[in-house]
Simulated scan of single mutants.
Amino acid sequence: MTQLFTQSNFALPDEFYERLIDAHRDLSTQQSHAMNAALVLLLSNHIGDMGVVADALAKARAVAQHTD
């Protein structure tokens, strides 16, 4: 099983963030949620390793549970 890599893997992380924000620009909240869901499914399929995806889901859920 491949391990989830959690360190930044982008040469230009700010460029990724800008692109992510731009992709959400002018979307309704519902459209933004739908885009996030589609992005998760596309990237999970690209990863193709259930162990890595399960680890990512667990880590993301833990972050969400500690956000208020």
Rank of each mutant, 00 (worst) to 15 (best):
M50F: 08
M1K: 09
F16I: 06
L20P: 00
Q30L: 13
D55H: 07
D22P: 01
L27N: 00
H66K: 07
T67G: 06
A64M: 13
L27Q: 06
T29I: 10
L27A: 03
V40N: 04
Q65W: 07
N9C: 02
L27G: 00
K59A: 14
H33R: 15
A64C: 11
F5M: 02
S32W: 00
L43A: 12
S44T: 07
R19C: 06
A60H: 07
A64T: 05
H46S: 04
A58F: 03
V63C: 07
S8Y: 00
A60M: 07
D68N: 10
V53Q: 09
R25Y: 10
N36Q: 11
T6Y: 03
P13V: 02
A54M: 08
A62N: 01
F10Q: 14
L27W: 01
L4R: 04
Q30V: 12
V63W: 01
F10V: 05
Q65E: 10
Q7A: 08
L20H: 15
N36W: 09
N45C: 09
A58Q: 04
H24M: 15
D22F: 05
T6S: 09
A60K: 08
L39M: 13
Q65A: 10
M50P: 08
E15K: 12
A58K: 05
L4P: 00
A62I: 02
V52P: 01
A60N: 05
T6G: 06
L41F: 05
H46N: 09
G51H: 07
T2I: 13
H66W: 12
H33A: 15
T6I: 13
G51Q: 15
Q3D: 11
G51V: 00
S8F: 02
M1F: 03
L41N: 15
V40D: 10
M50A: 12
K59R: 15
H33N: 15
E18K: 10
N36D: 04
A38D: 12
Q3C: 04
V52I: 07
G48L: 04
H66V: 03
G51Y: 04
F5S: 06
M50V: 11
L42K: 06
R19D: 06
V63L: 13
A54C: 06
A23N: 10
A11R: 00
L27S: 00
D55F: 03
R61K: 03
A38C: 07
K59V: 07
P13A: 04
L43M: 14
Q65F: 08
K59P: 00
F16T: 03
T67I: 12
L4D: 01
A64D: 09
D14Y: 07
A60T: 10
S28F: 04
N9E: 12
L57V: 06
A56T: 01
V40S: 08
N45F: 05
S28R: 07
M1I: 14
I47Y: 05
